[in-house]
Amino acid sequence: MIEVRIHGRGGQGNVVAAYLLATAAIDEGQFGQAFPAFGAERRGAPVVAFVRVADRALHRRDQVQHPAFLIIQDQALLHVPGVTDGLLPDGKILVNASVPAASLNGGLAANMITVPATAMAKEFLGRPVPNTALLAAFLALTELLPIEALLKALRERFKGDILERNTRLVYHAADQVTKGLWREVSHAASA
């Protein structure tokens, strides 16, 4: 079982990101579970969502306390207490930022990769919604699921121009990271 925690702000598509990831897993024949931990629901407020992916049915309903992966949709959230709590010792962090990991957090930089997802989203979608670019980079890094599974999940949720733009964004974002760099972690976590 692989556990992922996604941190973002209201309006960044945090829950949608979690749902897309679990949907992609389910469409691939695996078991997936995604749910939010809502606070006060308003734009800009820190929000958290959880994803579990497994090769067997998931019954537990507790929040993810010890994720193998963190996806951080806003680099400023790294300064919010608790955001990186519970990350497994070899766990990895994907951050939406236009600066290198080392300039964000010295201690965690070795396990962190940054992707300028907001800039990519602005370029491809015309809107600063970083979630699909981050998911694409995440799947490319971990090879947890094929990129096509994410595209299929997107097709279930979007159509027309928005779907086309997101599809181009997904291929672009996936190409910006080293494929399979985090494969070991996702294999270890799922063992």
């Binding site: 997936g32 579970q33 995604a34 749910f35």
Partner: peptide
Amino acid sequence: GFTLTHTLEP
């Protein structure tokens, strides 16, 4: 509520 209503699963 939330625990089931807002959980996506197969």
